[in-house]
Amino acid sequence: MEHYPIPYAICRVWLEEVFASTGLHWQISPLGEWQITDASGMLLATITPPLLFQNQNILHWEHLPTHPPNTLILLLEAGGTAGLAYLEEGAMVQHKIIRRYTVRKKQGKAQLNHLKTRGKSKAGSRVRLAETILFFEDINQKLLEWEVAPQASQIWYSATPPVWHRLFQAKAAPPFTVQDPRLHKIPLDLPTPTLEVLGQVSDFLLQTKLQIHRPQHLPTLSLLHTPALVQPGFQFDDSDTEGFDAD
């Protein structure tokens, strides 16, 4: 069996070539996978759809959208770095990295509730708390400035619960609510947000996993030999709910 992690756009080109041949059929597995069979029902290929297309009951390959849905990506790190991106038809048309001084340089601990417990008289603690407040306001102001949230079909985010809920407590509220049905958590354990990390997350959300069970019955495409877009070990345990440490 041959496995190919490929972008959605390449997968769709391949499907057009596959179904140019007669006698092949498209079906949805009980797990939501896209399957290609021959006239006898023999399974030729299985396609795990991108996260942006999961839970969509696409009854025929021709019903697949030409382009992925518009998507907003938010990566929020407790240490005071955020990565924002907006994907329009699969292309990153907006991106921003936001940084604020919210941690002690030597200890690297986040500053959210520290002044509620101790250290109220320390100038450094007051500065970091002020920077923490500005950090979330900067994020929401940028989202409002972009004016893309209403056009986004999906919103994918990465943040610990304390960080995520703090976003909605900022003076300038985000352009969506915490109960917005478009919200989805990114199932990755991510490093500090950078433009490169935003690109990796974008590729991950658009990645299609193709398994060819019987290559001799299907056309080949040179573009299928694309390197994996997400490095092994990038996955994380969904049970990770670690919050802030006080310094």
Rank of each mutant, 00 (worst) to 15 (best):
His213Tyr: 01
Pro162Glu: 07
Leu59Thr: 14
Ala170Asn: 05
Ala45His: 07
Thr48Gln: 13
Lys171Trp: 01
Leu183Pro: 03
His184Arg: 15
Gly32Tyr: 07
Ile97Met: 04
Val230Gln: 04
Leu210Met: 01
Pro174Gln: 03
Lys142Trp: 08
Pro30Phe: 01
Leu129Ser: 12
Pro191His: 00
Gln56Thr: 10
Gln169Asn: 09
Gly119Ser: 03
Ala78Leu: 08
Pro65Ile: 10
Leu134Tyr: 00
Leu43Arg: 14
Thr220Cys: 01
Leu74Gln: 08
Leu59Lys: 13
Ala173Leu: 13
Leu167Cys: 06
Ile139Ala: 07
Lys209Trp: 00
Thr226Glu: 09
Val18Ser: 08
Ile97Val: 15
Ile58Asn: 06
Tyr4Asp: 09
Ser21Ile: 07
Ile28Asn: 15
Leu84Asp: 05
Arg99Phe: 03
Leu75Gly: 02
Glu242Thr: 12
Leu134Pro: 00
Tyr8Asp: 10
Ser239Gln: 11
Lys105Asp: 13
Trp14Phe: 06
Pro5Leu: 11
Ala130Leu: 10
Leu72Met: 15
Thr132Ala: 15
Met92Arg: 14
Trp14Asp: 07
Ala82Trp: 01
Gln179Trp: 03
Ser29His: 02
Arg118Trp: 04
Ile47His: 01
Ala173Thr: 11
Ala159Met: 06
Thr117Cys: 04
Thr220Leu: 03
Leu183Ile: 11
Phe176Ile: 09
Thr81Lys: 05
Arg166Asp: 06
Glu17Ile: 11
Ser21Pro: 00
Glu33Lys: 15
Ala172Ser: 12
Gln207Val: 05
Arg99Ser: 09
Ile47Gly: 06
Thr81Ile: 12
Thr81Asp: 01
Lys122Trp: 01
Val13Pro: 00
Ala170Thr: 01
Ala9Val: 11
Gln207Phe: 00
Ala123Ile: 12
Arg12Phe: 02
Pro50Tyr: 02
His25Glu: 12
Lys122Val: 13
Thr192Cys: 04
Glu131Cys: 13
Leu218Tyr: 02
Tyr8Cys: 08
Leu43Ala: 12
Leu224Val: 11
Ile58Pro: 03
Arg214Leu: 11
Glu16Gln: 14
Arg182Trp: 04
